[in-house]
Design a protein around this nucleic acid. Structure first.
Lengths: 191, 191
DNA sequence: CAGTATACAGACAGGTCTGTATACTTGGGG
DNA sequence: CCCCAAGTATACAGACCTGTCTGTATACTG
């Protein structure tokens, strides 16, 4: 149950590791500080020394997730499509890989924006930045595949990706990735 | 602040009316029973006579929202497109109308599924049924417009709709409806 | 008028949550 | 060998949550 201390050395690291799992799995409001410190095997005061408030932990959690998610995504796309011209559609194969992971529960950023209804909250800004960075990557993939209108098309792809994610959660089924891929293929062949 | 008693006669009606506003606006977990009964001007025991638990109220809230949402959607589509062959794309015009409403905060069913992480919860089932019914309506619109592959295409349209909703929330901007409409048009012309 | 159903008002129990305060332990560097 | 920074353990304040309880008021019905 508990995270072994040597598993990830510093308390701060252990907290972020555990928070990453619990927040994503159960949502932010549903996870209390007490659960986090228990699983991370850290004292409460140590927690509050490293993170001023729970909100601050949430922001750090999102930043960390952004970095790791994009690193994984880019790796997966390049691995699945070594040739540049295959990469645009491989975006959706990577997505499907993600959907098939045992702990998949949608996009942490969408989920957070839904949970934190207040649009002025820092979490909203962090989520917006994440999606912007992902769109940037998609655009670069389209450019490298020598597809016209890369910027416009990247917006359409983002919409398809978000739609596929929500559908996968809703139907508890990864097939929406293939559906989105078909639509994307139709868009490319018609541009 | 309070809901006038004559506004909607029975206490049960007042509770559902208020819960509908507050749950959609701030999320389910964020709204306590006390806020609801205060704004609905109802005694606590009266509340618990009509709804066994908060969860039961949530389910009633979703059922009501399903009925009203679909009634509105169908009315809007027929109003915006009197001719059957114009209706498939008018789905997205109706959506945009919705996105422009002052209190728009995404799809109540998606939001609820995100907030209630437990996939076995009744709310998940209710949300799944809602989406199923919407897809049925879309399929009938496609059939009436004499479009082939109506069933397959209705799935694609659902994905586009969910994607547009999430994007509208994320960007706080109703333009995603037009984006989804363009994609839908491309799908139709290529089928 | 009596009886019954419905709703209101507000206190309360028992639990959860965040964040703080206090005192104890421990390990590494000067 | 001693110090002190970092971490631990635990109790606590105060807010808020769901759901229950007691008692009162009002309105319909026979």
């Amino acid at each position: 149950m508990k995270l072994k201390k040597h598993a990830s050395d510093s308390p701060r690291e252990r907290i972020l590791e555990v928070a990453g799992q619990l927040f994503y799995q159960s949502g932010i409001r549903a996870v209390g500080i007490d659960s986090i410190i228990a699983k991370a095997d850290v004292a409460k005061m140590t927690f509050y020394k490293h993170f001023k408030t729970k909100d601050m932990l949430v922001v750090e959690f999102l930043k960390r997730r952004d970095e790791r998610w994009r690193a994984w995504f880019e790796e997966a796309v390049y691995r699945l499509a070594p040739q540049a011209q295959d990469r645009p559609l491989a975006l959706f194969d990577a997505l499907e890989e993600r959907f098939r992971m045992a702990d998949f529960r949608g996009c942490a950023f969408i989920n957070t924006m839904v949970e934190v209804a207040d649009g002025d909250h820092l979490a909203h800004q962090t989520a917006a930045e994440h999606k912007q960075k992902v769109q940037g990557f998609i655009q670069s993939v389209l450019v490298e595949a020598q597809i016209d209108n890369a910027k416009e098309l990247s917006k359409a792809f983002m919409l398809l990706i978000d739609g596929a994610i929500v559908t996968a959660v809703r139907e508890k089924n990864p097939n929406s990735a293939k559906e989105a891929k078909r639509i994307a293929a139709s868009l490319i062949s018609n541009s």
